[in-house]
Design a protein around this nucleic acid. Sequence first.
RNA 1: GGGCGAGUGGCGGAAUGGUAUACGCACAACACUUAAAAUGUUGCGGGCUUUGCCCAUGAGGGUUCGACUCCCUCCUCGCCCACCA
Length: 818
Amino acid sequence: MDYNPQEIEKKWQERWEKLGLYQATDFDKKPKQYILVEFPYPSGDGLHVGHARSYSALDTIARKRRMQGYDVLFPIGYDAFGLPTENYAIKTGIHPIEVTKKNTVIFREQLKSLGLSFDWSREINTTDPSYYKWTQWIFLQFFKKGLAYQQEMPINWCPSCKIGLANEEVVNGKCERCGAQTEKRNKKQWLLKITAYADRLIDDLKLVDFPERIKNQQINWIGKSEGTNIKFKIGNNDLEVFTTRIDTIFGVTALVLAPEHELVQTQKLNIKNWDEVEDYINKSKQKSEIERMDFAKEKTGVELKGVYAINPLNDEKIPIWIGDYVIATYGGGAVMVVPAHDERDYEFAKKYGIEIREVIRPGEKVPTLRQQSEVRDSDIRQERIVGAYIEYGKLVNSGEFNGLDSEKAIKKITKWLEKKKLGKKQINYHLRDWVFTRQHYWGEPIPIVHCEKCGVVPVNEKDLPVELPYVEKYEPTETGESPLSMINEWVNVKCPKCGGRAKRETDTMPNWAGSNWYFLRYCDPNNDKELADMKKLKYWMPVDLYNGGMEHVTLHLLYSRFVYKFLYDIGVVPEPEPYKRRCAHGMVLASDGQKMSKSRGNVINPDEIIKKYGADTVRLYEMFMGPYEDAIAWSTESLEGCARFLRKIWNIYDNTEKIDKETTKELIQKLHYTVKKVSDDIDNMKFNTVISSMMEFINTWNEKNNVLSRKDAEYFLKILAPLAPHITEELWETLGNKKSIFETEWPKYDEKLIKKDKIDLIVQINGKVRDKINVNVDISEKEAKELVLSSDKIKSWLNNQELKKIIFVKGKLINIVI
RNA sequence: GGGCGAGUGGCGGAAUGGUAUACGCACAACACUUAAAAUGUUGCGGGCUUUGCCCAUGAGGGUUCGACUCCCUCCUCGCCCACCA
């Protein structure tokens, strides 16, 4: 019989579903394992071959764990609120609800056609009111704890999408979705206070097993920096400046304020060159964000003539400048200029003729490698003259602090300032609070009411969910208000507190809202009393393995950790971190090495490939194509190789000559080795070598007169099963088995059988391979030496030269040094 | 500018201190075939004076009996962040 994947795949998918083989059991006796993939956004484009790659990988792990005796939760759902659906709906006139329904059906079918072992009974959808009821409930808890607040603030506005964007959605000043240039607009926004959790989000990375690069990215994104806030007097006003290098305070020769800084206006009357200053302020206001960034290399500024600040440490008069390279929203919008010890300050000082005063010298203790090389290159003085010396060192020209090391000086000077109430220790973060509103239709309504008397009032929890009304028009409005504001009968409500006239909040939540906590809902998807039962959460959480893309590391992955920590604080979830281990897949690129996109016309449609080759081949190829974490270009030619491999397996099991014999000795060894290799490599997510080792096994089985016993033939099917579930299930049945292969135990290997008794001992002379001799594996050093030195081949190489040393590595090699 | 990572055949890659190029693709020859596809067999880094030897893992240096692997310098590419004081 020929291998016909289309037929057998359909058969087994139906049978698995009937058996309910992949349903997770709450409170099972077996140890639990929660394996999670980021749920897809059901876009109109359908499933991407990239989805297929990461889902197949985690499916492989889930299937193996089940066979290893775990109670596995491997769920799936849809993150369906969001802009593309709304934009598509506007274009076609089909309502977002309909679009979502249609796309979800397509996605579900595609996922099923891959034979993924999801527990379909727990499927969720973020646009389902019984789901977003709890998204809204979480928002109310944030509000009650004062962590959700409103603020008038400039938002990034995309004139094309007509939507406010979070900073993270603006790339180089352009809208992440449509690429249009964004503008700034002032609008009252809801924000979530993620900054209150900044420290814990850094510290608790210790508790989890994430790849280092992911931890680093999150730490950098939060951008914690410890320093000192110091007050300079300007007339009667205080100017607070943040610095991480208070040890350089005696080298301050200027201050630079952001053009927006309030003190510029306060000091207006004292500034002698006001016209020039005002001109500069206006010009920088006109510059867009991107232009201000483009000027990064050319720093500009204007001196505020006639105004001085007083350095509290030495009462020196310091000139004040404004410059638009200073960010208004960070560190108080002011910087102190220390040209001798900061590269940017040095550049600025050189340009405008500001004094450069040395206050730090390289100390005897040389802390960094960079400095070591500089010291060895001797010309320290030259270095100081040519540029800024930015390392720590010993203080000079610093009054009573002369001679101190930078580190000590920072502590001492800060203490001195604190004592005199002129400054204090300060920690700043780059992380900003999370703008949690969108002026769009297709999102979760924010459960807040604005009352004429009571002000901002939360909707009563018993009245949740605040359902998104079904409307005909969902286009964004020119005013920037949400389309919901147009629906009077929905907007006008009674105040939950006083019963008076009130209006609903018409902004909706961002597309990240529903994905912050979805993994909790899988534990208890139908609960209408709480977002999930604590007992069930205690059983399933935390997620044991969570797979997702690198592009979500600073967005979804950080946000959801924050939300989870908050839920932990209010006693809704059992521990402080949601994900025990995180892994990231590499992208699947088009065959030209570019990102797949419709406009480039290089998209591979998984449906077509599955139809032609079968799901097992697609799965196998996507695992084989390269290291799981790396981006790899698609190659249909390479995929054919995997199809060939499966056909080879089919044929060998079809050939009665090859099975039901006594397993040949070479194959016993190879089989056990392969079982070990496959077991280990699946756990380490090295799927490409899993498959190559199985290919090697099949090659050996095929060659010569190698044969397997029925039991050993079954062994091999089991280790292939998690990767190619359909073909193995079919062959398993053909061998006469009644139970599903996935209800059987994962095979164990026997170390003793893997061990070879004879090996090729490598004989090296001066590290070069000169010979291989077949010997017993446990040959002693003495025996090996005698054997090698008596061989004619080696003798001719040695040529009677003096032996200096012999290195012997047991079971591997012997190296003769002459 | 900062952080992280990578550089191995025509291509995807394997080997993380001990036989470099496993496995797969592509290619070539042969077999089967009227023919093609499929399948099978063989070959496939470069060079040479070819039972064998020399060279080669971005370049150069170092550590080591031994380096793709560890260390230093440089080059190239990718990703993320970026005037953060």
